[in-house]
Amino acid sequence: MAEPEQLVVEAERQAAAATTLDELSAVRTAMTGKRSPLVAARKALGDMEPDARKQAGQALNEAKAAIDEILSAREAELAAAARAEKLAAERLDLTEVVEQPASGHLHVITQTWQELEDVFVGMGYRVAEGPEIESEWYNFGALNFPLGHPARDMYDTLYVDYGEPGTTLLRTHTSPVQARVMENQEPPIYVVAPGRCFRQDTADATHMPVFHQIEGLVVDRHTTLGDLAGTIEAFTAAYFGPGFSSRLRPSYFPFTEPSAEFDIQRPDGTWLELGGCGMVHPNVFEACGIDPEQWQGFAFGFGIDRLALIRFGIDDLRELWTNDIRFLGQF
């Protein structure tokens, strides 16, 4: 019968010889299994004298512990090696990717439109909408353009064949939404109305028969021209960023008085003529059922398309409408 020390040496030799977990498992069976010399030696203890048994038993226990430790250590070694091998085998080139469909892009008009909405929502405004095919009344009449008024000629209006001739048109501005909001909502009113507008125009780099505007309307007890100028300035800072400022220049629109154009000054000192604005004309208030002695208001409006061109560095309005994926996919 082998001495326990020899068993430990043998286990050490066999464990070291095992190169896989399976081989090691066989070693474990051979060295510590039911038919192992160790188990046989333990069975043999029963025939020994108590003193000798005690001594031999202790030696066997120590040998068993030593063998277990050897096997565990070797198992850990082999497991680590196996893991490392597997990981090495699983190596991937992470740039080796078959092209997936790209994500889609919002149209530049929508991006600009939403950004403008967000600025005004942040300033406490709601967003109103109105029809694109509009009545002569809301587009002109309610806005203090009497029938036959030369100011109507300032708008190259497209009419549609609906109802009496000349009564139904493609709205030339978003201002009809002002009138609709005032008819349907009690002041105070703080709204913006982005929307699509139309005019009889030949498409070129700076004109399209279809374009987009955003309109603002505030009606409150003590709204002033100073409020209008301050609102334009606050919008300018919020949308264009620091270093941009605004100015108002007297102008003329039938539906506001006083009326103004507003310009944005860029940090380099140059000006961008942006839009029109003014104090809501008393005749407009009356046409919409609001008492101009009780309420005051201002309105402003400007083009979205040109802002989109400037923002994205596009130099031709027609590009917005081609729907060339090489255009759409850039923004």
């Binding site: 909405e117 005004f120 929502v121 942040g122 300033m123 406490g124 405004y125 709601r126 967003v127 105070p188 703080y190 505030v218 409150d220 709204t223 002033t224 021209l225 100073g226 409020d227 100028a229 301050g230 609102t231 300035e233 606050a234 100015r247 108002l248 220049r249 007297p250 008085e257 006083p258 009326s259 103004a260």
Partner: peptide, 28 residues
């Protein structure tokens, strides 16, 4: 006439204020 007063006074000289609304701005 108010427009003329404003025009001759100069729009740029009018103190700028931002009206405050109790309404919370929101999309529908």
């Amino acid at each position: 006439v108010i427009e003329e007063v404003g025009r001759l006074h100069g729009f740029s000289k009018i103190a700028r204020t931002v009206p405050v609304t109790e309404q919370a701005g929101a999309l529908t």
